[in-house]
Amino acid sequence: MKHAFARNALGTVLTITVGVTACAADNIPVHPFRVVHTYPHDPTAFTEGLFYEDGYFYESTGEFEGAGVRKVKLETGEVVQRRDTPAGYFGEGIIASNQRILQLSWQQGVGFIYDKATFKLIDTIRYPGEGWAMTRDADHIYMSDGTPVIRILDPQTFAQTGLIDVTENGVPLQQINELEWVKGKIYANVWQTPRIAQIDPKTGHVVGWLDMTKLVQAQKVGDPENDVLNGIAYDAAHDRLFVTGKRWKSVYEIRVER
Rank of each mutant, 00 (worst) to 15 (best):
H140R: 15
P128N: 06
R136A: 08
A96L: 13
L121N: 00
M134A: 04
G93P: 01
Q99P: 07
T76V: 08
E78T: 13
G109I: 10
E63N: 15
S144A: 09
D115Y: 11
P86Q: 06
E130Q: 14
R83Q: 15
H140I: 02
R82P: 05
I125D: 03
F90I: 13
F90N: 02
G93S: 10
P128A: 08
F64D: 11
M143H: 04
E78F: 12
P86N: 04
I101W: 03
S97P: 06
K73D: 12
L104E: 02
T135F: 08
G91R: 01
D84Y: 10
F119W: 13
A117G: 07
F112P: 04
I113D: 02
G62M: 00
I95W: 11
L102R: 14
D139N: 15
A117D: 15
V110S: 00
L104W: 05
D137W: 09
K116Y: 11
G62H: 08
R126F: 14
A87N: 02
L74K: 14
E78P: 04
Y114C: 00
D123M: 03
I94W: 06
M134D: 05
L121W: 03
Q81N: 04
S97E: 09
T76P: 05
D123C: 03
L104N: 00
D139E: 14
K116I: 11
I95D: 09
K73G: 14
S97M: 13
I141V: 15
G91T: 01
I95F: 12
W106S: 00
R70C: 07
L121E: 12
K120E: 15
R82C: 09
G109R: 06
W106H: 09
Y89K: 01
M143I: 12
A133Y: 07
E63A: 13
A96N: 14
E75N: 15
G68Y: 07
G66A: 09
G111L: 04
I113T: 14
R83L: 07
W132E: 02
L74M: 10
R82G: 12
R126A: 09
W106M: 08
G91V: 07
G62P: 00
R100F: 06
G93E: 03
D84R: 03
G66Y: 03
V110C: 00
T85R: 01
